[in-house]
Design a protein around this nucleic acid. Structure first.
Lengths: 332, 332
DNA sequence: CTGTTAGCGCTTTCAG
DNA sequence: CTGAAAGCGCTAACAG
């Protein structure tokens, strides 16, 4: 059995209150402080956060609900979120939804039952009802990367539609007319980026035939199959926009296998810059998200809600992106 | 305030014991079951795992101590570990050590204070003293990927030395004589792979001059700088072994920048296959680890320790790897 | 600054 | 099968 505060009490002859006070950074007579510290060391005492949390009703732990921990994109975000939380004295409880809405539902309950002080969510689902246990328990939620169509939470993300719109200018201004898109239609970001794509084409007066619009899930498979399909069209596009990391990866895979080369045969524009892509030849033009800033902002917003230092209405913060240039786009 | 078991008691007129029994899957009269379920739904009752853990002394939560959550390698491992735990009714509390031993120390205490039932560790440090809080608290630990030089824990990993040795045959049998290595020397895996490399060279009667031995940290920078250095040597190696994912990535980056091509100018052998590498031209020969099997095995071992269904001495399980073939090696 | 006491929400004897 | 009561380890009044 691990040592408890009672063991310290017996060892030092002090009262529980004094020891508790010491543990929480209160003022204690120097001689008592010494006694307590000696006892702690000797008994290998460690605070029981379960007991502490039970009485204080705070755990100083934030739940991170992430759609897939396998995704390098979420790994980066988690890293920055974790650092920001740590600086503020908070830990994070990460749960992996494995891209599965059912798992996600369970994970929310799990976090609530664990009494996290708040939740940062990168959701799988597009509708917010899975978060109702958090609402019932009055646990604040901040969304990241993906917004929800029917719910009001703080949300930190990029401006997907606009970012895509501007990035598309790179293709359009270089005289590409036949441009295809491979996008996820399951989550918010995919749909927004698709919309941004369509906006840019419409404003450029360009048509997008149905078989240039490949829609699927947020997955390597979607990118791979989509690109295969596009390359096999009689009337091949001269440019392709790929709407996220996994799809870009899958698209590149298919390109490599097919023997087509970029930018000679086809020009490419991707999303979610990761160092990995810098290894590729050609270097793909990439829309790059401000990961660190997003992580820090999400933490800032959540901590404000937790501490109740704000009663503002939930806000959507749309950060802007940077276009990482490459050599995957040919001027026609 | 969230509803408690006492609210359920008042709503149903039943006693705490009965409700608790229901919550834990015990037998309750059908009519009482109905009453309880109705009350739970109405009050949005959720179990307080803090209180439960305090009395049962079990949290059904396993701590995951990971050297860097940013690393795609750890992301994959976490995914498989998480699935295996979930199948067994356990959750996971992931903490990111950010490749920093001090953070790692704190993280161990954090996990202990949170009363995890066990820990799966992908450590930063090479020595095991940072785990002493776990020992003091009698919390079982299983290591993954990286072993510790001075401690006795179950460990699930690949046979780094042997895997490297065998993979190196691909270069050696194709008549490469001048082979360089870029390896991490900070952690266990890097050192073992370095040793395997040296073994293979020695057994082949090949010399490895000092400037062919690049050692550094487990990082992209090490791979990048290492490759740059190797490519600038007057007497360039014909083959290079890169000892992990990050180093391989960095090495490829430097290759691309330099204008040298593989396999024409230099043959490459890497470590830690990830889908990403399949996008590259050339496809690099890669040592591939059995991620899923490792994750499952680690969970199996840990749960045995937690449940006390074994009193065997700690064991090291070294799994074998597969060489993913590519076209990055030229026959001389 | 220190001590006493009540109680956080739950499980678990032990009776009935 | 159900109920009453004790107690897990800690904090938070409050009194001294």
């Amino acid at each position: 059995m691990p040592a408890t505060i009672v063991d310290i009490k017996e060892k030092t002859g002090l009262s529980l209150a004094t020891i508790s006070k010491y543990l929480n950074g209160g003022n204690v007579l120097p001689e008592n402080r010494v006694k307590i510290e000696a006892a702690i060391k000797e008994l290998h005492y460690e605070v029981n956060e379960l007991a502490r949390g039970l009485v204080t009703n705070r755990t100083r732990t934030v739940g991170l609900l992430v759609y897939s921990i396998e995704s390098p994109f979420s790994g980066m975000l988690l890293h920055h979120v974790g650092e920001a939380l740590r600086r503020n004295g908070y830990g994070m409880l990460i749960v992996d939804s494995c891209d599965d809405e059912e798992v996600e539902r369970k994970n929310v309950r799990y976090l609530i039952n664990k009494k996290v002080d708040g939740i940062i969510a990168l959701p799988v689902a597009s509708k917010g009802d899975f978060l109702s246990p958090a609402n019932n328990a009055h646990v604040p939620v901040v969304l990241m990367d993906r917004s929800l169509s029917d719910a009001q939470y703080d949300c930190v993300r990029i401006d997907n539609r606009k970012s895509t719109y501007y990035a598309m200018k790179e293709l359009i201004s270089r005289n590409h007319k036949k441009i295809a898109v491979i996008a996820s239609e399951r989550e918010y970001t995919g749909r927004e980026r698709f919309n941004g794509f369509m906006d840019s084409m419409r404003d450029a007066g360009l048509d997008v035939p149905a078989d240039y619009q490949v829609r699927g899930t947020h997955s390597i498979a979607t990118g791979y199959n989509g690109m295969k399909k596009l390359l096999s069209l009689k009337d091949r596009p001269t440019g392709v926009f790929m709407s996220n990391y996994e799809i870009t990866l899958g698209g590149m895979l298919a390109m490599n296998e097919s023997g087509f080369r970029s930018p000679d045969d086809i020009s490419l524009l991707g999303f979610d810059d990761q160092l990995f892509f810098h290894v590729l030849q050609p270097q793909v033009y990439m829309v790059e998200q401000p990961m660190k800033a997003m992580g820090e902002k999400a933490v800032e917003l959540l901590l404000k809600r937790i501490k109740g230092t704000t009663d503002e209405a939930p806000m959507e913060i749309a950060m802007s992106t940077r276009l990482q240039t490459g050599n995957s786009i040919k001027t026609l």
